[in-house]
Design a protein around this nucleic acid. Structure first.
Length: 665
DNA sequence: CTTAGGG
DNA sequence: CCCTAAG
């Protein structure tokens, strides 16, 4: 941006500045990031056609990019140089120089060395394409830039705006280039080339571009303007002449024998336009004339240089539209087409190109989340209906999610169940992702080795607890419920249960001392709870199936764990205190603790009034436990001091819970 | 993976 | 509970 402004005002002055800026700020420039897409790499086929670059080629090009840059600069320089030569050069003076010099050197080197290295040739072509594209891009860029473009191009600084980093890259990367490059570089450095170009400083660029046909000039690579005067029809040129012209145009020799190709290339080089058919134009003076028609086409470079004020975009784009008289095209470009399009347009109708390019514009791949959400929405819309009321919607989402991510299904869930949405009667398959911790593998192993473990474990648990038929956990009940709705995978859950039970029993036996009674009680309670939890209610909806209600025993364990290990060490607590509860994850513990904390804080004030239980139906957390929670929270400074202090005193009075816990503590 | 916090 | 960021 900065450069642009400056440039318009004063070309010369700007030049230097631009050059400086570019070097310093090339990477930072935002534009680069914005339009990288524009540069589409293409390969020149044997017949001279442009072929979209393959990935591999792209890679290659990437490596060569540095070279490209150089060349691009050269080309750009040349183009501009031309303009300067004809029109403004005197005024501008020697702006180009720093960049042009470097370029010219490389260029010359190529020419000299140019003893047609096929490989190099290929590279060159690629570079050229890139160069052309770049120039086009520049031209096509927003008007603001466009003016700057031209000028900048001459200096090479311009590219920074559009393609920051490239220049720098080029320079820095060159040494790194592959063998081919290195050779090319060496060539560039050859004394001859240097002498020629360097000596001329400002001229080199002009020679490259302009240098039309003059044979003599070709050798020295100086431009021969005389040739330019008068109409030149490429069709009439011999291969040799074409070669010379090519050389003059691009500053390097070519071994290509294909006339068509040469003509096309030259035409392109002169016009920088993508879409010039070889046979359809003639070059007249500096103008490219469509054959038969007298369309006055100024070379884009010339145009740009001459009249920066002219819609820069148009200038660049015009060339493109040469064959297609497309005012529309121009407009499109102006409207916001990316410069890249111009370059791409090469073989295609410009309009098509536009479309293609637009479509080509990279679209950010939607995030998984986005997709999911979208799918959710869609599903809601399609199937949704009234059925999914607010209450059920949550569930549905879950189901959708699970569907979306198959991955989770097998590993995380032990079961796939059909949940009936409340009241609707619609069943949605969904995978419970509750079981993060227990891989199926374990379950399977367990099954195989201890097919009857369920009974065993249950028995053990019973014995340990002294409980007869009560289920240790809600899980079993839950399972039963699940089984009802879903025929599938009952086994796994069952299996899981046993293991849990087993562990549970073991744990119980270990801890049996004081807790036994409590646990026992809890268990009975749990069962009931679970049932409630799992049962879908017609009215509203259903409880979350996969949700496992926290049993009192679990809560107590949790509290104990927190008291012992401190809040936040959930993994430890889980491991030590919840070994038997495979379905409780550390996150669950944390969440539960959070809830307990909240509950305790909320309840504390009302504690005495409400009694220990808030609502029998909802959650039967005994007041003592809540008190305990508060106490612990206080200790760990999780509770706001003010509340804690007052409450603490009150809670202290209750010993039963504390005592129970104290034993463990 | 565990922890912490938001939804 | 679920999800996701952070360490």
């Amino acid at each position: 941006m900065e450069t642009l402004v400056g440039v318009e005002g004063n070309e010369e002055g700007k030049y230097k500045e631009c050059g400086v800026e570019k070097s310093s700020s090339s990477f930072s420039s935002p534009k680069l990031g914005a339009d990288p897409v524009v540069y589409k790499l293409v390969r020149v086929d044997g017949d001279g056609r442009l072929v979209p670059a393959t990935d591999d080629e792209l890679m290659e090009v990437g490596n060569l990019l540095a070279d490209d840059k150089i060349e691009m600069h050269l080309v750009a320089d040349t183009g501009q140089a031309e303009g300067f030569n004809c029109n403004e050069r005197s005024s501008s003076g020697m702006p180009q120089l720093e960049s042009s010099e470097g370029l010219s050197q490389s260029e010359n080197a190529e020419v000299d060395a140019g003893k047609s290295n096929t490989h190099r040739e290929y590279i060159e072509e690629i570079l050229q394409k890139a160069k052309q594209e770049e120039s086009h891009l520049l031209a096509c860029r927003s008007p603001d830039h466009s003016s700057a473009y031209v000028l900048v191009d001459g200096q090479c600084s311009d590219q920074h705006d559009t393609l920051p980093g490239i220049d720098e890259k080029l320079h820095s990367e060159i040494p790194l280039q592959g063998n081919d490059l290195s050779s090319a570089l060496s060539l560039n450095k050859s004394p001859i080339s240097q002498s020629v170009d360097v000596g001329e400083c400002s001229h080199p660029s002009s020679e490259l571009i302009e240098g039309q046909p003059s044979t003599s000039a070709a050798s020295s690579s100086k431009p021969d303007f005389s040739r330019l005067h008068g109409e030149i029809c490429l069709d009439n040129l011999s291969i040799k002449e074409l070669h010379e012209t090519f050389k003059a145009t691009f500053g390097r020799e070519t071994t290509v024998k294909d006339k068509q190709w040469l003509k096309r290339r030259i035409a392109m080089g002169l016009t920088n336009s993508c879409d010039v058919s070889t046979s359809s134009f003639i070059i007249k003076d500096n103008k490219l004339v469509i054959r038969g028609k007298e369309g006055s086409y100024n070379n884009e470079t010339t145009t740009f240089i001459k009249d920066p004020t002219v819609g820069p975009v148009n200038g660049g784009c015009k060339d493109l539209s040469i064959n297609h008289s497309s005012q529309m095209e121009n407009q499109q470009f102006v409207s916001g087409q990316k410069p890249g399009h111009c370059s791409i347009a090469y073989d295609c109708g410009s309009e098509d190109l536009h479309k293609e390019q637009r479509s080509a514009k990279r679209i950010r791949k939607p995030t998984r989340r986005y997709i999911e959400e979208l799918s959710e929405v869609e599903s809601k819309e399609h199937s949704g209906k009234p059925l999914i009321s607010a209450k059920t919607s949550g569930l549905r989402q879950i189901s959708l999610k699970s569907n979306a991510r198959p991955v989770r299904i097998d590993s995380s869930n032990r079961t796939v169940r059909l949940d009936s949405l409340g009241g609707s009667g619609v069943e949605v398959p969904y995978v419970s992702r509750v079981r993060r911790s227990r891989p199926r593998k374990n379950v399977m192993a367990l099954m195989e080795f201890h097919p009857h473990s369920i009974d065993m474990t249950t028995t053990v648990a019973k014995q340990a607890l002294g409980v007869h038929s009560s289920q240790p956990n809600s899980e079993i009940a839950d399972i039963v419920l699940k089984a009802r709705s879903a025929t599938e995978q009952i086994q796994q859950p069952l299996i899981v249960e046993p293991q849990k039970d087993k562990q549970f029993s073991a744990m119980v036996s270990i801890e049996q001392g004081q807790n036994m009674e409590l646990e026992h009680i809890d268990q009975s309670m749990d069962t009931s709870d679970d049932n409630v939890a799992t049962v879908p209610t017609v009215k509203g909806g259903m409880r979350r199936k996969h949700h496992r209600a926290w049993t009192l025993s679990e809560v107590m364990k949790l509290v104990e764990g927190v008291s012992r290990y401190g809040a936040g060490r959930w993994s430890e607590i889980k491991r030590l205190a919840f070994a038997s509860y495979s379905y409780r994850t550390s996150v669950d513990l944390k969440d539960k603790w959070r809830n307990l904390l909240k509950a305790s804080l909320a309840q504390a004030p009302a504690d005495k009034r409400m009694g220990s239980r808030k609502h029998a139906s909802s959650v039967p957390i005994p007041a003592p436990i809540l008190l305990r929670v508060r106490e612990l929270a206080e200790m760990q400074s999780q509770v706001p001091p003010n509340l804690s202090s007052s409450k603490l005193a009150g809670s202290a009075g209750r010993n039963n819970v504390n005592e129970t816990r104290s034993g463990y503590l």
